[in-house]
Every structure is written in structure tokens, then in C-alpha cells.
Nucleic acid binder design. Structure first.
Length: 254
DNA sequence: ATGGCGCGCGCAGCGCGA
């Protein structure tokens, strides 16, 4: 089974990239974030032409998530059950025995903003939800745009970013508390090239200059971790015309 | 190097992202 996550920064604009990537990589499940359109506008027919089912949880202008899959999804859930929120950031579904939760974690803007307070509260509610889901689903994958770089290795210039949003101790501690539930960041199960990132600012030629962060993650339960055979970032779509600022990240399970 | 870029909205220029 191959699963992947990709913040597409507008599904309308990125539909050709998504279709191309599905055709080339053939993931079993692809989680999308920042589709930036209402659920009813999601291009389900175009995705079906590519051989994929889809479930979306979208809204106008901001946020929005979707799950594309070769198999029919079961038990679709949206949102965090313990955190009423107008912002649409979570969609979950079960494929066979595997539960997949697709996330768009709040950005947080800056560590002294109200949005940062919201981000930390959101992460606390996420931890409670994941604790409950782990009890229910031994084979659990939680993937998406976490908007947290787990470690200095995941930051092109750790000193410049130290303490800043996406890299602060408070955010990293929240991520650690998710991992403490029994989840593993599968990317780090394997030897990786130094300076592997999943997001690069559109400004300042950040991609060309390899100035990025790894903030798109795939966390899995121990049962899935033991069967994981690969995990990588595919930076090729970031080189296309009008790219998303994020690259897809995938993991393979035997 | 925070400013630049790119998105939606909507038709100018702003809010937002990370």
C-alpha cells in the first residue's frame, strides 16, 4: 500500500498536477490539503477519470481537505469531534483495515498571534482525537500538512528559524506528544538525503536555493511502522509551471 | 533577505499562507 500527502494550494489550479502525479505514482490513497473550494465544487469527475474515488471536505477560499483513493472509502469522518470549528481541516476514512486521517494543521501565523493560540488548542484537541482513534484502529496513519518542522534537520537554516512559528518549542512539544501516543514519523525510519524538505517559499527563489522546511508528515501506528518499506518526498512537482509551494510526501507499506 | 510570490475574491488591492 502506498499513501501520500500533498498540500496543493488550490485544487482548481493544481488539478493537472494532481492528475499527472496520480498517473505516474499510482498511490492507493492521496490526502490533499488547501483545496480552497467548497465541497460541491470538488472535481470528482476528473478524479474518477484518473481511476480514483474521492471524498472532500471543503470551503470557499480557505483550507479544505480531500482523500483520493483507488478503493472505496468507508466510515468517512470530518473535523475533530471534540473541537467545533468552521475551518475545514480534517477528513478521515478507512480503506480495508487501514484508517487514514488527513490533516491541515493551522499555520499559526506567528508565535505571538491569536492564530498561534488557536493552533495549540487545535493540536491539543487533535491529540485527544488520535488517542481515541488509535484504540479503535490498530492500523492508523495520520498524514498531512502539520505546519511543524519536527527537528532542526528539517529546517534549511535552524538558527534563523529558531523559536519562530513552525519551529517553536511549543509546537515541537505538541508534535512530540502526538508521537508519544505511539506514532512514528515514517520519513525518519530511512536514511534520507540531507536537506530534504517538503515546502519552499514562493519568494526569494527559495526552491532553487534549497531553502525549505519539512512540515508535511506521515505518522503511523506501530503496527503500520513495522511494515513500512519506504518514505520519500517527491520534489519533481515543485519544478513544474505554477507549482504548489509544497511537494508530495509518500510512504509504502508491505 | 519577510519584501519579494501565489492563491481567492473580484476587478483593486487586500488577507492569508509558512
Amino acid at each position: 500500500m502506498k499513501i501520500a500527502t500533498w498540500n496543493v494550494n488550490s485544487m482548481r489550479v493544481r488539478l493537472p498536477h494532481v492528475r499527472g502525479w496520480l498517473a505516474e505514482q499510482r498511490p492507493d490513497v492521496l490526502g490533499l490539503q488547501e483545496i480552497k473550494m467548497p465541497t460541491e465544487d470538488f472535481p470528482q469527475a476528473d478524479i474518477e477519470e484518473a481511476g480514483y474515488r474521492s471524498v472532500a471536505y471543503g470551503q470557499r477560499t480557505y483550507n479544505g481537505v480531500a482523500l483520493l483513493s483507488r478503493e472505496e472509502p468507508a466510515d468517512v469522518g470530518v473535523g475533530l469531534p471534540n473541537f467545533p470549528d468552521e475551518q475545514r481541516r480534517v477528513i478521515a476514512a478507512t480503506y480495508g483495515e487501514v484508517r487514514i486521517i488527513n490533516l491541515y494543521v493551522p499555520n499559526g501565523q506567528s508565535v505571538d498571534s491569536e492564530k498561534f493560540v488557536y493552533k495549540l488548542a487545535w493540536l491539543e484537541a487533535l491529540r485527544e482525537y488520535l488517542a481515541e482513534q488509535l484504540e479503535q484502529y490498530p492500523q492508523l496513519a495520520v498524514m498531512g500538512d502539520f505546519n511543524i518542522a519536527p527537528d532542526d534537520r528539517d529546517v534549511h537554516d535552524p538558527d534563523a528559524w529558531r523559536g519562530k512559528v513552525l519551529c517553536s518549542d511549543a509546537e515541537r512539544e505538541h508534535l512530540q506528544s502526538l508521537l508519544s501516543l505511539g506514532l512514528t514519523d515514517v520519513f525518519r525510519l530511512f536514511e534520507q538525503p540531507e536537506g530534504t524538505f517538503s515546502w519552499w517559499d514562493y519568494r526569494a527563489a527559495a526552491f532553487r536555493r534549497k531553502m525549505g522546511l519539512r512540515i508535511d508528515l506521515i505518522l503511523v501506528s506501530s503496527k503500520l511502522a513495522s511494515s513500512c518499506s519506504a518514505s520519500s518526498v517527491d520534489i519533481e512537482p515543485r519544478k513544474l509551471e505554477r507549482p504548489s509551494d509544497h511537494a508530495p510526501v509518500f510512504a509504502v507499506f508491505e
